[in-house]
């Protein structure tokens, strides 16, 4: 029995936070809802999207995303709505702007630096 528990604990269990009553009947809309949910960060979690989070705010946002999709809003409009209220932090891909320019240029600078050290003549 002990070994069974150890074996089970090593299995990857894809436990979803989304509840059955949240899922939309329209398969196409549900697909977009999942896409949006994976682009939005759960604000009270550590690096988790709202699709996979059990937090209260994540659930509220998931429901709101689906409500807005059903009322005819586009993915772009919904992402803008949430972004307007919670700022760049809520997006997993923050927009390119001066305040967060470091996010975009540091990897490039780091790459240049590493390339130099890797290929320099010894």
């Amino acid at each position: 029995m002990k070994y069974l528990f150890i074996f089970l604990s090593f299995l990857y269990l894809n436990v979803l936070a989304i509840e059955p009553n949240e899922i939309l009947e329209d398969g196409d809309l549900e697909k977009i809802a999942v896409e949006i949910s994976k682009e939005l960060r759960c604000l009270v979690c550590q690096n988790e999207d709202i699709h996979n989070s059990n937090a209260d705010i994540a659930k509220d946002l998931r429901i709101l995303v689906r409500k807005k999709l059903e009322s005819g809003e586009s993915k772009k409009e919904i992402l803008k709505y949430v972004h307007d209220r919670y700022g760049d932090f809520v997006l997993f891909s923050p927009p390119f702007k001066f305040q967060n320019i470091g996010l975009w240029i540091i990897p490039l600078l780091f790459f240049l630096l590493m390339t130099f050290f890797f290929f320099r003549k010894s």
Partner: peptide, 11 residues
């Protein structure tokens, strides 16, 4: 919880 989202409240 929709009014809270409208105000950008997260906790």
């Amino acid at each position: 919880g929709e009014a809270s989202i409208e105000w950008g409240v997260y906790g």
